[in-house]
């Protein structure tokens, strides 16, 4: 008998539902993006995101079941993003999931959003442990060591801005349209990394990151050039900024991968779609051919519910169940998720 998990994800600005078979096969995957609603504000407005979720949730669920060609009675468990994320946005998914679980007597599973991003890769290839995941997105920059399924050990994280956040801020400074990350990535391919921006290596043995100094350096450089009446090419600024971010991410990931002797390295999260990062990682890991380097397909890098169902499948197998009093958990830590009863 196959196992079918329904996943629901509403932590930010995508209303998403998906059905995953046996933890690895996508049967249906529906994402209603709100990006057009938020673009005019230059970022996600939480209240607007929450309003869209409550409008979209049953529409997205219906489309998911239509795509899958199965009914809710065929579902083994319902997995939903419990956190972290925007509280008002998370609440829509959590309460919808509880409504379904109660109405159809199905087990309910709360999933950590970052665990979801990591497990997006299992929809492509089976995991081999120990495994190192670099999670990079608008809200996260973390190096996570996994010794087995469901085990998450954060060995490095950002001390200030997330990488994606730095991308968005630099993009805004360069007056690029929202969302800024892909815009910078595109511009960087056209420009030359001829400005020497700082690299924050931090302490010798640390796998932590810091991007606020780099962000300030970019803003200051642009400001100073303007005062001197010089104009810097946006594409060169983008290329130089991206070179700094990508070098630090690549070097730290490579060092951690060799130190912990991992079998696989996974790059996950929205910034995993970045072409500059992909190229740099692939080039660096040629030095360690025994390590299997994985990137999720582009469609699974950004927020989706297939990744929540994939992570939910493992949690289901491991016996984790949430009660009907499950709440949204906007600052849910991955460590607490790993250690939950």
């Amino acid at each position: 008998m196959s196992e079918y998990i329904l996943g629901i994800e509403t932590s930010c600005d995508e209303t998403a539902a998906a059905i995953v078979k046996d933890g690895r096969d996508i049967v249906a995957n529906v994402v209603a993006s709100q990006i057009d609603s938020h673009r005019r504000f230059g970022g996600v407005v939480p209240e607007i995101a929450s309003r869209h979720h409550v409008e979209q949730i049953t529409v997205v669920l219906e489309e998911t079941f239509q795509q899958a060609g199965i009914t809710i009675e065929d579902i083994d468990a319902i997995a939903v993003t419990e956190g972290p994320g925007l509280v008002g946005a998370l609440l829509v998914g959590v309460n919808a999931a509880k409504g379904l679980a109660f109405a159809h007597h199905k087990p309910l599973i709360g999933v950590h959003h970052i665990a979801g991003h990591i497990y997006a890769n299992r929809l492509e290839k089976e995991f081999r442990f120990p495994l190192l995941a670099l999670v990079v997105s608008g809200g996260h920059t973390e190096l996570i060591l996994m010794r087995e399924h469901g085990d998450f050990d954060i060995i490095g994280e950002t001390r200030d801005d997330a990488a994606g956040e730095a991308y968005d801020k630099v993009a805004r400074t360069l007056s690029l349209p929202y969302p800024g990350g892909p815009q910078i990535d595109q511009l960087a391919t056209e420009g030359e990394a001829n400005i020497d921006f700082p690299r924050a290596w931090l302490e010798e043995d640390s796998f932590d990151f810091s991007f606020s100094g780099l962000k300030s350096a970019v803003i200051n450089t642009l400001h100073n050039a303007k005062q001197k009446g010089q104009t810097l090419e946006s594409k060169d600024v983008a290329a130089s900024f991206q070179a700094s971010v990508v070098e630090v991410l690549t070097e730290k990931t490579f060092k951690a991968a060799t130190q912990y002797q991992v079998k696989q390295v996974i790059v996950a999260g929205g910034v995993a779609a970045n072409k500059g990062l992909r190229q740099s990682m692939i080039a660096k890991f040629k030095q360690a051919p025994a390590i299997d380097l994985l990137f999720p397909p582009l469609s699974l890098c950004t927020d989706n519910a297939a990744m929540i169902a994939a992570a939910g499948s493992i949690a289901y197998q491991q016996g984790h169940r949430a009660g009907l009093d499950l709440n949204a958990n906007p600052s849910f830590s991955l460590e607490r998720y790993a250690k939950r009863p």
Partner: peptide, 19 residues
Amino acid sequence: SYTGVRIGLATAKTMAWSL
């Protein structure tokens, strides 16, 4: 309350739709 209303509607809508 915006959040309160959404909790009720998210629950009621999914229950009604799925049942």
